[in-house]
Design a protein around this nucleic acid. Structure first.
Lengths: 193, 193, 193, 193
DNA sequence: GATGAATGAGCCTTCATTCAT
DNA sequence: AATGAATGAAGGCTCATTCAT
């Protein structure tokens, strides 16, 4: 069902996707969608919930694999989670874009979007406050979050398919550069702000 | 016409926007849209072309105001251009999102999106290669571009309206991080790559 | 459904007939027409198929009623079938005319028209070759077919309603002219060709 | 103008032909059609009037070329006039079909059609009454008229282009056969009726 | 008189949803 | 519970006609 939705959106877009297409692909009747998901919009919401759950799971798994005290590694793990093959799959990417456009006009979708947006930021902030003063942690968290979304978006919109590794390289590079500076002259610089 | 489109998309989304709504708001007949813009899709394209032109103009203007040799300032000018009040206006933002979702399934829109995406990147790269070795310039350019898009996107999707200043602060911070390193040990470090 | 189409074309012509009119008269929803007939054009095709089937049935029935060896009577039966009350009904006649005009620009309709056109001719030829040398049979078959269509058309276009009997009289006269000659001096004349 | 109409109907049918297409081809403005012809329907009427006038002229010319007392030749001349290359031109043929379909629902077109239909019949009847008793002349006239229309129609609807010669052959054959019989045993046969 | 830009009614079609089975 | 045929509102687009220039 969810998979059908993703595949169909991939093929023809959210507008082009009809409930008939989706239900046919899933091998169920059209009625079932209105019945169980409360219409097409509800199906999109359920689909995004599923994608979001997998994203969260993907991050959690990566975090479990790294030293719980190595902040830099933990953040890189979060980044890797966001660039999990499943997340950068074309059908998921297209669904994300459709979801964003729709979310601006659908409260239920909007809430979902907000929760996800805030979760990433707070995760990053939580890690960074362990080694950076709060104002700086705030800025770096916002930066990393924006980099994740921005790299993800740029990759999504480019035709060359997804280059997740390059994205992660840019982010890692930023992170290690930043943290190394901080270790050297962090005190002074953070006073400046 | 273009303004009507933006306002209508802002109100009801691209899907919800009918040509009747748009033409009524613009005070013209429905027929005129198909006649001049080649249908609803053509209208979206024309609208985005207009938005893109204004973005380009906004950046050009900011660049004209800064020292043509101060690379950091020039990049900040590009960033400021991207966060111009007109660009972060809610109706423009919503149209961007709708445009992205649509562009995945409409070749003419896709081309437009690609041109814009590449233009920002090449502008940044051009400036950065003046003070950084090419591989590093590449990474920083990609980083700044992603930060712009990412901050812009996060701001767009958050309800609190747009906080362009915070976005610019984050990006400035990112930029100075890289450039300060370069100044300190740039020669050696860039040789390493 | 078919009946609704015929009645509506009778009233306002094919151009004037809207799907809404037809479906309303049939007491079904408009959507059903696109669903089952693949649009207005498909509906016309289905309607003509029905008319054609009834024409074929009408001829078959008339043929069953006559001596299978009396060629003249068999041909008259075919003629009678073509002038069956159902075939010369005003609504059927108008639909035929609309169909012809449309068939020139619609491959699927065109094929249908060709099949029917050829069927009549080959039926006549088949009967006539039993008593006439082939070249003459060919000419008489073409003549009878043209007479049927021509009488039918003239009657269709005249306001006085259909005078099927007069049409049949003319055709019978034509037929006996040819067949009587053949009986008298057929051997010699047919050698001439 | 008239020529443009014929060409456009040939290409896309009467329904498909827009006034814009026709006026563009004629190199005039769209307004001119409503202005001078009173709309699209008026243009069709004017076009058919032109076609009809040429048909009449074509027949008159053929009649002028034959002996005014040779009835058989005069009728053959009328037939030849109806199968004049100009009349069996594809664009004229298609326009005729469209005209018929339309005439059923447009009084002004209907009158035009009636006039033409009757003119042919009365011309034939006039000639035939010179050598046949009236009832027989009536039947033969109706037969020849129907043959002309029927052959013309069958040729029009077949894809093989127009085979005017074969049509004329069938009609001539009928005519000479009929008249020769009549001369031989005309008295007796006509008494039979 | 001639133009052609603008109009807007009306069309066919699509498709989310419903509901009898 | 599951189906899928039927619904009918609504959308984009076309195009004959108008009318200011």
């Amino acid at each position: 069902m969810i998979e059908s939705t993703l595949l169909t959106i991939d093929e023809v877009g959210l507008q082009g996707a009809t409930v008939a297409m989706i239900s046919k692909r899933a091998g169920v009747s059209v009625g079932i969608i209105s019945h169980y998901f409360n219409g097409k919009c509800g199906l999109l919401e359920a689909t995004m919930r599923s994608v979001l759950k997998e994203l969260a799971e993907s991050i959690r798994q990566r975090l479990r694999e790294v030293d719980s005290d190595d902040v830099e590694e933990r953040i890189k793990a979060i980044v890797r989670g966001n660039f999990d093959p499943q997340q950068i799959d074309r059908k998921v990417v297209k669904t994300w874009l459709a979801f964003w456009a729709q979310a601006m006009h659908e409260p239920s979708l909007y809430r979902l979007q907000r929760v996800n947006e805030k979760r990433l930021l707070s995760q990053l902030r939580y890690e960074l406050t362990r080694i950076l003063p709060r104002p700086k942690a705030e800025i770096v968290a916002a930066g990393v979050a924006a980099l994740i979304d921005g790299m993800w978006l740029r990759a999504a919109l480019s035709s060359d398919g997804f280059n997740g590794e390059k994205a992660q390289e840019v982010i890692s590079n930023y992170l290690s550069t930043y943290l190394s500076i901080d270790k050297k002259g962090g005190g002074v610089r953070s006073d400046e702000r």
